[in-house]
Every structure is written in structure tokens, then in C-alpha cells.
Write a protein that binds this DNA or RNA. Sequence first.
RNA 1: GUGGCCGUAGAUCAGCUGGUAGAUCACCGGAUUGUGGCUCCGGUUGUCGCGGGUUCGAAUCCCGUCGGUCACCCCA
Length: 425
Amino acid sequence: MSARAISAVKGMNDLLPEEVERWRVLEETIRETTRLHGYREIRTPLVEPTPLFVRSVGEGTDIVDKEMYSFVFHDEPLTLRPEGTASVVRAYVEHALHTKEPVSRFLYVGPMFRGERPARGRYRQFHQAGCEVFGDPGPVVDAEMIDMLVGLMAKLEVGEVEVLLNSLGGAGTKARYRERLLAHLEPMKESLSQDSQRRLETNPLRILDSKHPQDQEAIAGAPSILESIDDEDRAHFDRLRALLDALGTPYRVEPRLVRGLDYYSRTLFEIRGKSPELGAQNALGGGGRYDALVEDLGGPKVSGIGFGLGLERLLLASKAKPGLRVRSVLIAPMGARAQTEALVIARELRALGIVAHVEGRGGSLKSMLRRTASVDAGVALVLGDGELDRGVVQLKELDAHVQRDVARAELAAEVTRFFGRGTTP
RNA sequence: GUGGCCGUAGAUCAGCUGGUAGAUCACCGGAUUGUGGCUCCGGUUGUCGCGGGUUCGAAUCCCGUCGGUCACCCCA
């Protein structure tokens, strides 16, 4: 303990076994829910060529401008993925998956990296689960996806949530709206916050969801994007709303919802939690349609829609509890001969699906049995030279405080029978 | 990235206005020599985040730094 200990990188956390139990429950719930909707899991590298994100997420976004873990390795610019969609699109294009099926549905789960200042619910290495659908222009999938999210939130017991919905229109309307917005904002440039003045150049749409008090007046008077979208965009949006209404899936239209990635078009949504556990980071997930992205990344003209969920945040908000621990067998061997036999017994039990712990550290029987509590053992097996000579093992039923000798040959059957008749507390 | 608050045993924390540290839990051992969880008794645990400064003397004051946290920002 004298050497200086090394600690984890700022904003990157260890997940200790106790927490991992909750993570597994969460991930299993997500996998099962998405599986029922036809999503299949895809796994892509954590590292991608830097241009992939620059081209998809977009220059001028906070993510690309200041949050990416980028580095050059052997002359190649690489980046630790800051989000999941770009990689999935890249893989979709690279493997020409559109030629194999008209519609593809993907689930991904894994770590993402953004160099932000850590806070509650915000980390530099964080985890997302996300879904992507390619080849279906909506709006039926849009509704189905949002409805799935709301259902998933309920299953995870995250409490009350709010779905914010907006439409950005297609590429054409987006550009047109951008001009209208600029025309409105330019004259009042001086009154805007510094961040927003900068965004006038880089990414004017982002000004809409600025929370700066200085910006509120300008934003309030700004033209609504929903009034700028064209007829087709509007028909898409109206149909989506009608579907959600019919499904009874609650949402709130938020014309100023913009979000931080450039590739979105038409449908845009965000799901916010109300749990006080979330602190200021209340966005549990968000996503939208990206009908031009696949083509922009060199693929076919295929539409797409997807979302990402923040696993850390879901865990903060979720009240779902991990299942009961599986009860186990603790084997306490006294002496060298017994230790060998303990390993053999453990092997037999594990082959039958029973969790077995061998107390191999020696010490007094008392100290070995003391560990029954921490491993949540239902049964302890004690064996020493006496038992070995008689060809038996002492079986202790811990809850019942009873013990008896069991013939070595019948041990596995006896333990199986014990667990079989239900010993869950 | 900006500002506020915090940083003492593995964990949660106490330690007032400066005199080199404690509680609880956990852990280890014991309560007639091979029998747990409860109880009782005993024990270990710390470069008081790190570096520097003030001082005869600092966990206690000052500066810096790192980490955490809250808000801003951003989003998941």
C-alpha cells in the first residue's frame, strides 16, 4: 500500500458488482422490449474515423466542436464514438444491408464518450442503448417507436415522463427556416448571449433552445419552425400525432425542441424524466428521423429514424429492483484432504446449476461458516477427516438450523432436492 | 468550459475558535479445543485528496492542484 495508487480517468467510472446487477436488469428489459418490436442487436467498434462524426453529427455542434475524444494513430484521425447512430449507419452502408432486406431494425448498447464536465447523470464515458430503423419513412414507425419508449419507461419504473415532439421538416424546409430565423435574429444580435451570438454563425437553430435569460425575448418572437414546414412535412407530422393520440401515448408539441445533432429531419423527440434523482440532467433519451443521413454518408437513399437512451440516467430514475440473489452452497473443508474433496463436490454441484463456494482459505470452521451470510448460502457442507473416513458429508440447512450426515454418493441429489423444494426466503 | 460547495479509516461521518485523530458499519479474532446469521468482548484500519505557504506547532488558516458535487452550459 505504499506505492501511489492510480485512479480512474475523470468522468469514467467503475461499475462494482452490486451496481452491475441493476445494469443487467436494465439491459435485459431493454433487450426484451426491443426484441418484441423486431430489433436485432448490432455491435460496432468504439473507435471510428473522426470524419464519420464530423460529417454526421455536424460541424458547429457542441459534440464535434469541443467534446470528442479524438486522436491520431499512425496518421489516421480517430475518435471514441460520442453517439451511436453514426456508427450504425456506417455499418449499414458498409455491409450494403439495404440489399438484404427492405427494412432493418437495430439495437445497440454500449459506452459513448464525450468530454464534458461530469455532473450527476452526466459522465465522460456513459452508456447508451439505442434503436435505429432504416428503410421506413414513417410516420407509422415514428409512432411505434415513441410508443415503445413510453412503454419501456413504464416497465423500468422511472416515474412520470414527458415526451416532447417537434418536426424540423425535410432538408429543404430546414434551410428555408434557417434563413427566416436568421432574418429575425440578426437585427437583435447585440442583445443575444455570447453563446448565441456565436451560434448565429455556426448553428442558428440551437439558439431556439437556449436557456439564457438574455435570449428569451428573441426566442419568444422567433418564427415557429412548425409554421415553416411544407405540406408533406406537415402531413407526416399530423399523421404521427393522430397515431399517438389514437394509441393514447401522451406527448407535448414543443416547436422549440431542436437537439444537438445536425442530421435530424422531420420527426424529433425527447423524453424527459421528472424524478428528482436526475438533477439537472433530465433527458432520459431522445431521437428523431434522419432521412438524408444514410445518403450523406455515402449510402443509398434510405430513410432512417432512431433514438438513444442514457443508461446511467435511467438507472438514477428507475425504481425497478434487481431480482433476488440466487442462493448458494458454501463448502467448508477442514484440512488438506477435505479441500481436495470440496473442489470435487463443488464441481458436481455446479454441473447441476447450483452456485457453490469453496472456503479454501483455511482457518477455523467458525470463520469459514461465518461467510454463509455474505454469499447468501442456503446450505453449508462441512467435511473433515471424520466425514471423509465415514464416506459422508455434513449438510447444514442454514435457515432451519438443522444438520445431518449425507452419504457422499447421495450428496448431489440431496442438495438438489433441498433447493428444488424452494428455499427462497 | 464558468461559478458555488465539499474532500478525515473499505463505507457513512464527527473532530468548536490551530497542539500530529475518533464513532458507527464493514472486516478479523474470541466467548471450553470442528459449527454461521443475533448477542457480548477484543482487535486492525488512516502519508486527515495532493503540493506549497503561514506558524514553535495545521486535519483545522492561506494559495495552488486534483477529484467529487450542485447550478450554468450541454445533452444521454
